[in-house]
Design a binder for these strands. Structure first.
Lengths: 232, 232
DNA sequence: CGGCTACTTGAGTATTCTCAAATTGTGTGG
DNA sequence: CCACACAATTTGAGAATACTCAAGTAGCCG
């Protein structure tokens, strides 16, 4: 059963679209007490090196996951919003493999991993669903590899906005992440993100004011992204 | 139990290092007849759109997986060699989500997915191991996102070579993939790969002749890659 | 109202891309 | 076994994108 029904307190100001949940937690809820955890912008959900013991399902807010290499390089590997899973990258490790930081006020549901596995025993569909959820992370990452490998900076930013709009279910939204986070994720510099947004606005495809974004014509934007690739 | 023991016919010319298997197939072998499949360079293991029904464990050879977008952009999302799993990105889908092509003469073991799930029922450790294998794919992808997002072209190529050498367990090897495949994977142009290899050779870090590569000093190479990142 | 951080903008530079051509290696047929 | 066609790789030169550094602006928090 989808959890969207549980979400009956949404505010009129922000019409909540139907949420697609990465994982159906109801079967687990029957056996486990799912703790909630609230975070403020800047708080860490977990850090690389801490004992891995739980996955998290985002109920509200936005988080980023960051990978830090031994020599100090840093990479934002993804953003997660309502309905998405966190921590799957660390399954099979003893400690978390990256940092996850809230970018806005956030609430997550804790899914104690080993307890989950216990519930899965005797219910193959559950574990299989978990495996599928992890696999979909792989596909998501491959999708971004495609974007980063084949699109110029301005089109990457456009693809990012389109993706964000699709997740929000809205063409107008406020980016909780800063330019630097978007830049890291898209493998460009933060000034380049700024200029890309300005460029998209100049083309009449979007309206930008700081973190407030509005897609003026999402379809035209998508066509423009794909057109650039066709020029060969 | 590790399958490396089964590999007792290796040729003297190519000393086979201890193979780390992405998945322990012995428990499955007890219940399933694991078919083998041989491919020649250029053959497809599977194509996007074909019914998803099996994972594959590479026993010998090398393959690439490619993602093709609706508007014609193409991206190599990874290379897989002995011991590595293929098809995990398609778990949860009805059809495979990308193309996988052999880059050399290759042999894979077929792991019929739904039969595997059957075997996993009643053996939680097995399914949990499969989930962990998928999760490690996520980590691998994040590692490459880090490299692509934070390293200049020449250093990306160096990182690629170091990774390849580590997988082979040798500092001298023949790349089965062409410059274009490496280029797509690393998000640069194929001429850039050529120039990067020439540059690394000029620095005395490697020796290159077509696809024959030799790391003259793997440690120095690694230090050089990480040094470039430290300049900030 | 400071002081701070995030964002924007500009100018010059550097890396990488693009396009073209030359070279090398490979496989095939004579 | 050689000649030839083809594919992959290399190299060069100029152009373009994106980066770097620096300065200025704007919003936010205390």
């Amino acid at each position: 059963m989808n959890l969207a029904l549980a979400d009956c307190h949404r505010q009129a100001a922000t019409p909540m679209p139907h949420t697609t949940w990465a994982l159906d937690v109801e079967p687990f809820r029957e056996h486990l007490a799912l703790a909630r955890r609230k975070l403020k912008a800047g708080d860490h959900l977990y850090r690389a090196g801490q004992p891995f013991n739980a996955l998290y399902l985002v109920h509200e807010g936005l988080l980023k996951s960051c990978l830090l290499s031994s020599d100090g390089r840093e990479q934002v590997t993804g953003f997660r919003m309502r309905g998405e899973l966190l921590g799957v990258e660390s399954i099979g490790l003893e400690t978390y493999g990256c940092d996850v930081v809230a970018l806005a006020d956030t609430e997550v549901w804790c899914l104690p991993y080993y307890a989950m596995l216990g519930v899965c025993t005797g219910n193959p569909a559950l574990q299989s669903g978990l495996t599928a959820a992890v696999a979909s992370e792989v596909r998501r990452d491959h999708g971004w590899m495609l974007a980063i490998g084949t699109l110029a900076a301005e089109r990457r930013v456009a693809a990012f906005l389109l993706n964000h709009a699709a997740h929000c279910g809205q063409s107008q939204f406020v980016l909780a992440m800063g330019r630097a986070d978007i830049a890291s994720f898209l493998a460009v510099q933060h000034e380049t993100v700024t200029r890309a947004l300005a460029g998209l606005a100049r083309r009449g495809l979007i309206a930008v004011s700081r973190r407030q974004i509005r897609l003026l014509d999402a379809n035209a934007l998508r066509v423009w992204v794909e057109d650039g690739a066709a020029v060969h």
